[in-house]
Design a protein around this nucleic acid. Sequence first.
RNA 1: UGCCUGAUAGUAUAAUGGUAGUACGACGGUUUUUGGUACCGUUUGUCUAGGUUCGAAUCCUGGUCGGGCAACCA
Length: 559
Amino acid sequence: MSEERSLNFLEEIVEEDLAAGKNNGHVLTRFPPEPNGYLHIGHAKSICLNFGLAQRYGGQTNLRFDDTNPSKEETEYVDSIKADVKWLGFEWANELYASDYFDKLYEFAVALIKKGLAYVDDSTAEEIASQKGTPTEAGTPNQYRSRSIEENLQLFADMKAGKYPDGAKVLRAKIDLASPNMLMRDPLMYRIKHTHHHRTGDKWCIYPMYDFAHGESDAIEEITHSVCTLEFVSHRDLYNWFIEKLEIFPSKQYEFARLNLNYTVMSKRKLLQLVEEKFVDGWDDPRMPTISGLRRRGYTPGSIREFCERIGVAKRENMIDVGLLEFCIREDLNKTAWRRMAVLDPIKMVITNYPGGQTETLFSENNPEVEGGEGGRDIPFSNELWIERDDFMEEPPKKFFRLGVGLMVRLKSAYIVKCDSFVKDADGNVTEIHCTYIPESKSQNDTSGIHVKGTIHWVSVSHAITAEVRLYDRLFKVEDPSNEDGDFKEYINPDSLQVLTQAYIEPDMATAIPGKGYQFMRKGYFTLDKNSTADKLVFNRTVTLKDSWKAPQPPKGGA
RNA sequence: UGCCUGAUAGUAUAAUGGUAGUACGACGGUUUUUGGUACCGUUUGUCUAGGUUCGAAUCCUGGUCGGGCAACCA
């Protein structure tokens, strides 16, 4: 499978480690989300990376929830994260929580105090911040920094025992207030938070900070390669410092560039705003870049894995075109989606030489990409059909391979028809198209000798079923909403959702299968929405088909 | 302003001192009962100025530009 693909820098590191005999040849990675939101496509990159790296080298991956800040974390998020990782197709070796290690972490902190490497500080947050200095000026020590080990031990025990209110004291590592790395200027290890934790309940009122939990958790689990994103580069010094002073398993941290996708936002904070302020229908709104949103939209796990593979891994900031994501889902669905006919913007076609009231049944295969077509279904045909409004033009331009008076097209899986005339209402809108069909041109049995350039889709008026179809477009009008002036929400695309309440679909779709991708021929890929019921079918458009047809004159003046 | 980090076609990503390649996109063509798919072709690139070397995208020096760091968030 891996062919001659060249290695990314993380794979190179692992191979070097393996060649050097490190960790007895073991590879153990971890995916460490904080359960404070839903996973998005950026997490998918990290998941594919961590699980993929382990898989490739015969190792395993832990799923570890980084739940050290109880005020932001909820079980709802834990559940959704587990569901999303599974859906993507990965199996973790162990389901773990940083909160599993609170006792151990407390012991680690005590050990550091005993070594004179940590102290309790009574300063306020503001005082601590100002005492840290600036990037160009060293920080200044306060009187708490020189507390005795015994006093620190007692104070820390009292913190744990709940003797102090939130914010009264913190535990800090005693490192270097003049370090050029701001994170090394006596970083906080523990803060007081009298807050209920989603797993440990009210057992604790002090909670470790990220920097004092992450590397330690890695070490406890004996993670060999701890992969994270670039913004943690400056944390690596601290990560290593704690491991060294604690003399625990030497996990190593490596950083890669996070995924940025254009026309969307990726930060949990912003996604949360979109949900809370009702700009979208929830975390799984099909316009959201969340895993659950993509799933509801009709993306498959394989297409997302393929996308993550194609975007590559490096240390350079990047902005990936959503077009690549769309390419991946089209490539997948083209091979698997069953073809169906649906008319989204209907106009009536009357076949004047076909007997009214007569119905015949035509057969059409499910999937032309697969040998044998994966079976097929019967489609009823009659003298009145719905066709797509834009498949007819009053004054067709030169290379318009559809309908206009005098033009011929094939009706997919049926007959060739010739347009004779059309009917307009009082306002000048075309309301009906009149055609004659060529009986000898029936699909599979065409003896007419006529060849036409265009084939269009259709559904029989008296047999069609009605459905709601939701068309989605990019959520934002600009490539990088976070980087524009003002609030990112000002750049939301007002037309990101278009609801068609009266689309006509071939009757076979009454039994559409939830979770399956369908191609509405010539219109795109669609899937049943979770709001769909037997009485009211609702389809989401996953993505359009690639469309290389360009009208000679652009329909609307773009910028 | 200090420290850390990065810079290869439009976008990503290879080339590990020895022919700058691949994918997506764009453009053109062939096939087609989907203006889809498939297939074929074209297009565009090493941030900059020096240096080392027979030879530099790669090594060295300076500059330029991008990203990150001064949360009791992760």
